[in-house]
Write a protein that binds this DNA or RNA. Structure first.
Ligand code: FES
Ligand code: FES
Lengths: 134, 134
DNA sequence: TATAATGATACTATTATTATATCATTTTAC
DNA sequence: GTAAAATGATATAATAATAGTATCATTATA
């Protein structure tokens, strides 16, 4: 099971790669050469990151992408949310049919606790902290 | 994203249901009537739990399934392991191609920490504790 | 010995993820 | 002005994992 999808994972790499080189602007082609992420896939996630406010883009001939904000302000949680939505490890498979009281289901509450922990980790991790190796 | 698959989830229900009624023996048909888990699917997971040592089975005319051990000794981690294998939230998508040092990859180590937490929760939860609601 | 149970296993369906392909639009170098 | 080089938008295909079904063999006993 993968906690992070490839979209998320690739995107983190892109962000880290960009952040490591200051405030440079990058074309999809350049990023492809450096990171070897499948090209059309890379383009799509760049566009999504642009829409999602993680990147800025310039169109046209000398266009490209750059970070929309400082690496220390970009949280892993933002990336996960963009590509995977709000983390939900906890979906009840039974919708009332079996479990009489979802709120107090002990199984759910364990999973909820794991989810909370994961979200806390994601919130506490920034692109900058990843670059610094902690 | 589901941290527990249906196989795991259904199986926990089966185990809890059985545990709530002492050491009774159950046929697949009885469990179906009580839990409404899709019949062929239910039969398959019962057989897997038998092979995996969580249940005992008796074949033949008055056969059926029963718990192989006391509810306080059956851990959620056992069920997860049986159906989902060793929890691995952490698979590296890049196999050496990009990340120079997997061991010290800060992204992986965050995820590893979440995985460790999850496993700890699973190890600390038993069928009995679920029945008791904690 | 017919019946009612599990054992084994092959198969299908559904869904989510991953990846590709195309064409439209924008900007600028010339 | 216009060709070129970039992103924007979006439809589609491929793959893999999960979920669910179906069938026949084997076993034990009423
Ligand atoms: S099973 Fe749905 S919440 Fe307990
Ligand atoms: S990416 Fe493979 S481990 Fe860091």
């Amino acid at each position: 099971m993968k906690l992070l999808t490839r979209e998320t994972d690739y995107s983190v790499r892109v962000l880290c790669h960009m952040a490591a080189k200051g405030n440079k602007q990058w074309t999809a082609a350049e990023l492809y050469l450096d990171l070897r992420i499948p090209r059309p896939f890379l383009r799509r996630i760049l566009q999504m990151m642009n829409k999602g406010g993680l990147l800025e883009s310039r169109k046209g001939r000398s266009g490209g992408f750059r970070l929309a904000s400082a690496p220390r302000t970009i949280k892993l949680a933002d990336v996960v949310r963009l590509f995977q939505g709000e983390l939900r490890l906890n979906e009840c498979l039974f919708k009332k049919r079996i479990c009489p009281d979802r709120k107090h289901c002990p199984l759910r509450s364990k999973i909820q606790s794991i989810e909370d922990y994961a979200v806390k980790q994601f919130e506490g991790t920034t692109i900058q902290s990843l670059l610094q190796g902690n």
